[in-house]
Structure formats: structure tokens, C-alpha cells
Write a protein that binds this DNA or RNA. Structure first.
Lengths: 111, 111
DNA sequence: ATTCGTGATTCTTCGTAGAATATAACGGCA
DNA sequence: TGCCGTTATATTCTACGAAGAATCACGAAT
């Protein structure tokens, strides 16, 4: 098995990429850490970049995937919405299916 | 159908990417034009880049995908080998199959 | 020997995506 | 009212890959 099929997938929305691997991991980290900043830090991503991704996802989703709050004791935070969790689940399902496909198709390469 | 599954595929070899969309198009252009330079020019790719891709493919393939000749009247050239043509065919086959998969899987997204 | 357009290779320049930095604005709470 | 850590946003800096330029090698035909 010297040659293998590799690939990437993402879900495209009205403005381009809506959900991809990195974006979904970010959503999960937000759920775990309770803020965009901490989530970004935990995966060594710049806050600026993380904020843009969240903004992009929220703009393309019917209902927001992340609810953000500013100010307050401790300085606000962010939380994954139910809709966001469903998006995460949907992506992982497609992602796993995709990996299975690549794995199977790899065995059929005649080189 | 607001959301769609998009993706990219390539065939991975010993040193990383072996065949991808751009690489295969390059091989076809080499077959059509008879030289790396003309092929690169025809697809607005720098010769330098094209040369690197051909080198990478040749190094990872059992038998060369492109035979190059230097010097001579007209200055040599390059031609796609039989092995190279088989590689091209193999990739397009996987690529088409891949597109079908994405298209079908797109309809099953529940968002 | 000269010519010609290619392959092969090195060095320099440049565009840009991302990181880093900076600074408001926010709003509960003590 | 001041403090705190976050969100929000603009600006600057930087690292890196691609592009471009510049050479040299090549060898068959004339």
C-alpha cells in the first residue's frame, strides 16, 4: 500500500467555508472553556483569527452557533448554542463518513 | 440546498503529495505541448514551479512519469511516458468518483 | 563552430496570510 | 466609581512561499 488517497472536506455556506475541521474544533473548545480567548489559546490560535472564524460561522448560520457576551465580572465570555452543537455533530458525522470513503477508495487505486 | 459539501483530494506517495488536480493537468499539458516550459506557460504557472512538480512526481513514481531531454535542435523537451499516462487516468478516475461522492453526500447534510 | 530553445539551478524580490500589538468598549461587582 | 477580563476592531510586523530574473548546461542541426 504505497499510495493512498488523502483529502479535506468542509461544508460550504453562502459566504464560502462554513464548517471545517479547525472551525469545529474551535467550537468544541469554546464549549469547554467558555470563551473565545481561552479556546483560541488552548489550540494555539490567535484570538483575532478565532474571532473571525466565529463571526463567519455566526453570519452564515440561521441561528448563531456561539453566543457572546461582553463585560461583567470576569469580562463576559462565549458559549456554544444548541444550534452550534448540532452543527458540530453534523460535521463530525460527515467527516467520519468521509474518512471511511477515502480509506476504502484508497485500496482501489491501481498504480 | 443552502449548504454543500466541498473537498479536495490527492494521492499521497512516499514524500507527500504525488498526484493532485494541478499536477495531473500539468502532465496533460506536457503531453500536449512537448515541453515543461510550454506546458507551464499554457496554464500560467511559473516554469520553476512546474519543474519542481515534475521532479517530485518522477522521484515518487516507480518509473518516471515524464521523460526529459536537454539540448538538441529546438532545445530538447519533455514527454509524458506510458506510466505517466496511466497515472493520469488513475487520478481522473478517482477524482470523478470523488466528485460523485461529495455530490451525493451533500444531500444528506441535516443542518 | 554557431545557433537555438529547452532543461537545470541559484539568487533576489514581492505579495500576502497570519501573528503580534494596541486600544476601545463593555458591564457586573465590590 | 474603579477594577477586571472579556469582546471588538484597527494597525503594524513578520515569516514564508511563490514569482521573477539571471545563468549555465545541453546537444542536434546547420
Amino acid at each position: 500500500m504505497e499510495y493512498r488517497l488523502h483529502g479535506r472536506v468542509w461544508i460550504e455556506g453562502p459566504e464560502g467555508t462554513f464548517l471545517g475541521y479547525g472551525r469545529v474544533v474551535l467550537l468544541e473548545r469554546i464549549r469547554e472553556h467558555g470563551s473565545i480567548r481561552a479556546a483560541a489559546r488552548s489550540m494555539e490560535m490567535s484570538y483575532r483569527h478565532a474571532w473571525k472564524l466565529v463571526d463567519s460561522m455566526n453570519r452564515q448560520s440561521r441561528e448563531p452557533v456561539v453566543e457572546k457576551s461582553t463585560g461583567g465580572r470576569g469580562g463576559g465570555g462565549a458559549k456554544l448554542t444548541e444550534s452550534g452543537q448540532r452543527a458540530v455533530d453534523c460535521f463530525w458525522q460527515a467527516y467520519q463518513d468521509y474518512r471511511d470513503y477515502l480509506s476504502n477508495r484508497s485500496t482501489q487505486l491501481d498504480l
